[in-house]
Computed example of a mutant assay.
Amino acid sequence: MAHGKSFLVLRGMACTALMVALAGCSLWNGSGSKPVPADLGANVPILGVRQAWTARVGSVGGLPLDVHTAGNVVTLASADGTVAAIDARTGGDVWRVALAEPLSAGVGSDGKATAVVARSNALIVVDGGRERWRQPLAAQVFTPPLVAGGRVFVLSADRSVSAYDAATGRKLWSQQRPGEPLVLRQAGVLMPVGDTLVVGFSGRMVGMNPDNGTVRWEAPLAIPRGTNDVERLVELVGRTSRVGESVCARAFQAAVGCVNTARGSVAWTQPAAGAEGVHGDGDAVFGTESNGVVTAWRRNDGTRLWTTDRLKYRKLTAPLLLGRSVVVGDDTGLVHILSRADGAPLNRIATDGSGIAAAPSVAADTLVVVTRNGGVYGFRPE
């Protein structure tokens, strides 16, 4: 609890309680059984991929994990408080630290300072494998902190944004925003775009002055509607796709859209029933829907380019656009490599079967995926 608000909608909540309002639970059909996922058929590896290395970080289950990449280094965390920087070329540790307390959000990094948030509501900053400082927070945090410009920015579940000096931990400013009473226990939007801090509040993308938190512009991707708090939930979720001044994002179970951050205006929105973020480039934006359908939209106007139901009824991660491929993970631990042109399958890779815990990422020409059991896998083209 914080500021008198009750944060009730969490990713781990039973689907039966909210099946009508949360399309993220749409795989439950009301009869006590789930629809059978589409048959994948035989794997025909059109695009050759080999496993280059494996590593471990500890169980990620229950942690809204964001994998951070900078150069050749991948930084990630486990639910029990292990934070590790891994060399994507070899899979070996650059550094590793055990904070010995469970985490609620992680990780953010600028390649030097790494920030996570403990379930005890403590912001913890690590530098080179050693804890530099920690500061108490007033509310829970599910979005990885942003480390940029010598500062650490935190988006809390009470819809406050705070900034801290990355070297000392001194609090620089804090701004409170109004919003709906429910939030999601998953990562939201918190990113730098030029000299603007871009933050997701409910269904709005908001540009803030990083020096003091004042609002420069607001752009709504989705408007809360409905007769109760659950139906009105339209939180923006990570990951996002940024190309220059264009930032595209998903509003939970409501829409996908792009914002021109120079003007602070919405370029387009399209209805979309998904719970994970998007990725893309200057030509297209890609997303996964809650029923396992993968969709591509034209970036400049939101026109739908294609959809594929080959992964229907599988719970998918947010996608990664990688060259001519769109990469998604599923809850059985498979990594699906699809054609960016039409969604056709190019290859399928198995991991440890525990489910892919975060959107795939790339560093040092290596595709990196993390499983719920804490397996870290590096794949490269053959």
Score class of each variant (00 low, 15 high):
V293Y: 02
F142W: 15
F142R: 13
E131A: 08
F7L: 12
K5E: 15
T269E: 05
A98C: 01
T307Y: 00
G12P: 13
T196R: 13
T261A: 11
A115Y: 06
A138F: 02
F252R: 07
G282D: 09
L236H: 10
S59H: 09
A350S: 14
R134N: 08
K171Y: 01
G129F: 09
P144A: 13
E231G: 10
P381M: 07
V215F: 01
A122Q: 14
E180T: 11
A77G: 10
A118K: 13
G257E: 09
T303A: 15
T371F: 02
N121C: 05
Q253L: 10
G203C: 09
T75Y: 02
A139P: 12
A100V: 11
I223D: 12
T214F: 08
P181W: 06
G353E: 03
N228C: 04
V83M: 08
L338E: 08
R232A: 15
R177L: 14
R372N: 15
G91F: 02
P102T: 02
R170I: 08
R119W: 05
S241L: 10
R348W: 02
A84Y: 00
G353F: 06
A23S: 15
S246Y: 08
G343L: 01
D158E: 13
A222D: 11
V126R: 04
S354Q: 10
T308Q: 02
R263G: 14
P319C: 09
N212Q: 03
P224Y: 07
V49Q: 07
T90E: 00
N228Y: 07
N43C: 14
G353V: 09
T332H: 08
V198I: 10
L155D: 06
L40I: 03
R242L: 08
G169V: 01
V230C: 04
S33G: 07
A105I: 00
A273Q: 14
V147K: 07
G323L: 05
D352C: 10
N209W: 00
P64K: 12
N228K: 05
D301S: 08
G302H: 05
D66K: 10
E382G: 13
G92L: 05
L334Y: 07
A113D: 15
V94G: 01
M208D: 03
S104Q: 04
G264L: 05
G200F: 13
L367D: 11
V376S: 00
V141R: 11
P178M: 00
A284Q: 11
S26Y: 00
T261R: 04
T143H: 11
R310G: 13
A88F: 03
A38R: 09
G333M: 00
G61P: 05
I337C: 12
S354G: 12
K312L: 11
R372K: 14
Y313N: 12
A85C: 09
N347A: 15
R263Q: 14
T317D: 06
N300V: 10
D158S: 03
G58R: 03
L47G: 02
M205R: 01
A138L: 07
S6Y: 06
P145G: 04
D229M: 07
R242Y: 01
C258M: 09
H68F: 10
I356G: 12
